[in-house]
Write a protein that binds this DNA or RNA. Structure first.
Lengths: 112, 112
DNA sequence: CAGGATCCTAGTAGATACTG
DNA sequence: CAGTATCTACTAGGATCCTG
């Protein structure tokens, strides 16, 4: 009778669960902040990111951007001028996640 | 003209952002899995959790449960029988977060 | 300007044994 | 049964300096 609930995570042991995958991608110390800044600005340069994400180091920023790019969440566009210029932006995939993150954000503000 | 977007995270520096708060609570290695198991069973005993969350140790399970309880996401109900019995369940607050997590899960399955 | 390389620290998690 | 108490291991993250 009762409508069967959709289980939050069936494959608890492995990394098969979509939820775990998302948290692996977004769960680090810096990645949501980076996504936030890019989302707020459409397109952002490396130095601008380093100044905006207060406290981040080169190591962490470069590494996080690489991983986000590898995961298909940010685009890296390099202009071979002198000196070099690189612009980062969100992919369509990333943009489609933003509304859900906004819901989570509102939930957090209301409940924590 | 264009409708102004709601920013994902204004307070990037501090922990003021609701999104960061949520990730701090749910972002660990075990907590979502624990929430998953409890959510799937309504009410779960300690030993059942330890067997269900494959690979977790006593240390981590006890610690995670304590933090989840402190954050108001799980209820701890102790029966002073012999031997002791303890049942864990989700709070209303936690239940209100589940639908959002489900969305994230579906997004992860579709995009990762 | 946009990173890379290297070394180091610290918080997070695991193993094992024990207790009310 | 439902946890504590120690001790150890690992790895994410930090500091500093360097380069195409």
């Amino acid at each position: 009778m009762a409508n069967k609930k959709e289980p939050l995570c069936e494959d608890i042991a492995g990394n098969g669960c979509g939820l775990k995958k998302v948290l692996n991608i977004v769960g680090g110390k810096w990645k949501i902040m980076i996504l936030c800044v890019i989302d707020n600005n459409e397109t952002v340069r490396y130095g601008e990111l380093r100044r905006s994400v207060y406290g981040i180091t080169n190591t962490m920023l470069a590494q996080s951007l690489k991983e986000l790019e590898a995961d298909g969440l940010v685009n890296r566009l390099q202009f071979d001028e002198m000196p070099v210029r690189v612009e980062y932006s969100l992919t369509e995939k990333a943009k489609s996640m933003i509304p859900i993150l906004l819901e989570l954000k509102r939930w957090g503000e209301a409940n924590l």
